[in-house]
Amino acid sequence: MPSFQTKLKIAGLKPGNPPESVMAAAVEALETRHHVESNQLDIVGGVPQISLRFLVEARDYPGENSEARQSAAMMRDAVERVALTGSLYVLRRSRGKWAPI
């Protein structure tokens, strides 16, 4: 199964939402479609960024990439209910390296 990673910048929380609600929303959304291998929060250039690694069912290469992009967008929509977001990145693991798709 191909491995993908999505990274999403978090600009701030919406009122009434605790910080942990961001990752909870992201994981819950992705788990509806894929196995989530890991998740983490990093601070990149002073800005919080969540990263989730997930598996996509094997099929044709373009179809796998398309499904990963759609799932990342769905995850972002879920996170935007609790937080303000910034840039979204989707990467695919290939030959031991992460490459943007």
Rank of each mutant, 00 (worst) to 15 (best):
R81I: 03
A58R: 12
G12A: 12
A83K: 01
V82K: 00
R81Y: 03
E67Q: 01
L84P: 02
E37Y: 03
F54I: 10
R53I: 15
A73V: 13
P62L: 04
N65D: 07
R69V: 12
L84H: 01
T6H: 03
A11D: 12
V22F: 09
I10K: 04
S51E: 15
E64L: 08
K14Y: 04
N17Q: 13
S51F: 15
K14R: 10
T85I: 10
Q49M: 15
R76E: 05
Q5K: 13
R53Y: 09
V56H: 02
P18Y: 11
A72Y: 10
D42I: 14
P18D: 14
I50V: 11
R81C: 02
K14A: 07
P48L: 13
S51K: 09
T32I: 07
S51V: 09
G12F: 14
D42T: 09
E57I: 14
T85Y: 06
A83L: 06
D42P: 06
Q5M: 15
V36K: 02
D60S: 05
S3L: 15
V79L: 06
V47F: 08
Y61A: 08
E37L: 14
G86F: 10
A78H: 02
K7S: 03
H34F: 14
E37R: 07
D60R: 03
L88T: 00
L52C: 09
L91R: 01
T6W: 08
A25M: 14
E37P: 06
D42A: 09
V22P: 04
A26F: 09
I10V: 15
A72W: 13
A68K: 05
H35S: 04
E64V: 10
E80F: 01
A68S: 09
H35W: 12
S38V: 06
Q70A: 01
G12T: 11
A58T: 12
E20C: 08
T32Q: 10
E80N: 00
F54N: 02
T6G: 02
L13T: 07
A24V: 14
E67G: 00
L88C: 00
V82S: 00
P19Q: 14
R59M: 11
G63Y: 06
A78M: 06
D77R: 00
G63S: 12
M23K: 04
S38A: 13
I10F: 08
R76D: 04
L91E: 09
N39D: 08
I10G: 02
G63I: 14
G46L: 15
F4N: 00
S38I: 12
A24L: 15
M74H: 07
M74N: 04
A68N: 07
V44F: 05
R69A: 07
P19E: 15
R81F: 08
